[in-house]
């Protein structure tokens, strides 16, 4: 089956003035993403995530290796027909309104007339900016900029969407909205390649994850495989009586070679608590 993304032994060096040796930003990175998959590339700042993405978009030229999008060499303009890209902290043309921004990017992709207008309307609704479509982008909040950015990335109905830190600087509510949009893309069969250092969010949305460190891919695979601890078992009960718990503990203790590591109430996340107490709150 044709891969949505195929990066093979990618190497990227940056030559900086005053340094004899070039700085290797990406060192023989290989990864593949299947169509419809949500792939997360995680790593600390300066580890080579953005450079990998830029190489995939043809914004930087690989020193070695290849990058392909649906079989097309990413240095070829045609490969971009299938890609939508949201850069980190995007700023769009401040003089354009939200609708004009989408129209501009749509026209660049060859959309015209009713098809373009229909697409603009649909995307504004999708990212919940229908009410702000006639406002200049210069007056948009951070979260609105991210959402209009996501809409422009989707304007030509790409099969692959690349998101570079899609929730950077966005509050938890906006962050959750973007997360929901990613789920929506996944449901529509669109392949998503995102990089982020918000690990909880990556864990929530991604099918597969790659960990990049100092330019090298150090771990890669399906998220479930990477996160499961091979020699431990989780048992979550609801409304268990203290007597039942005592019985269970006694049974476990009587079993030779088995050790009870922890018993207690599972914790919610701070993000879930925040959303429950703010957006999800019925009365102030």
């Amino acid at each position: 089956m044709e891969k949505a993304v195929e990066i093979q032994d990618l190497v990227k060096d940056f030559r900086t003035p005053g340094r004899k040796l070039p700085l290797r930003a990406v060192d023989r990175v290989s990864l593949t993403i299947a169509p419809g998959e949500v792939y997360g590339l995680i790593g600390p700042n300066g580890s080579g995530k953005s450079t990998t993405m830029k190489a995939l978009l043809g914004l930087v030229q690989p020193d070695a290796g290849t990058c392909k999008i649906f079989g097309n060499d990413s240095m070829q303009v045609d490969s971009r027909q299938d890609v939508g890209f949201l850069p980190e902290n995007p700023y769009f043309y401040k003089h354009l309104t939200g609708a004009e921004t989408l129209r501009y990017y749509g026209k660049l992709c060859g959309l015209r007339g009713k098809a373009l207008e229909g697409k603009v309307k649909e995307l504004l609704e999708l990212v919940d900016l229908g009410g702000a479509s006639d406002r200049r982008v210069g007056g948009y909040s951070k979260g609105m900029l991210q959402r209009i950015g996501l809409a422009q990335a989707l304007v030509q109905e790409p099969r692959l969407v690349i998101l570079d830190e899609p929730t950077a600087g966005v509050d938890p509510v906006g962050s959750r909205e973007i997360r929901d949009l990613i789920f929506d893309l996944k449901e529509r069969g669109i392949t998503v390649f995102l990089c982020s250092h918000l690990l909880e969010q990556v864990q929530e949305v991604c099918d597969r994850v790659g960990i990049i460190y100092r330019g090298k891919m150090v771990k890669e695979g399906p998220l479930d495989d990477l996160l499961s601890i091979g020699d431990q078992t989780e048992l979550i009960l609801r409304d268990a009586s203290p007597e039942l718990l005592e019985k269970l503990e006694a049974m476990i203790r009587s079993e030779a070679g088995t050790e009870l590591l922890r018993c207690g109430r599972p914790k919610t996340t701070l993000e879930k608590l925040f959303l429950q107490e703010t957006v999800g709150r019925k009365h102030p």
């Binding site: 914004l59 971009r80 890209f85 850069p87 769009f92 043309y93 990017y105 660049l108 950015g149 690349i162």
Partner: peptide, 14 residues
């Protein structure tokens, strides 16, 4: 500077 170039060149624009 505004990174609008990224979004333009990430489209099929020679």
């Amino acid at each position: 500077e505004d990174r609008t170039l990224y979004t333009v060149l990430a489209k099929p624009v020679p």
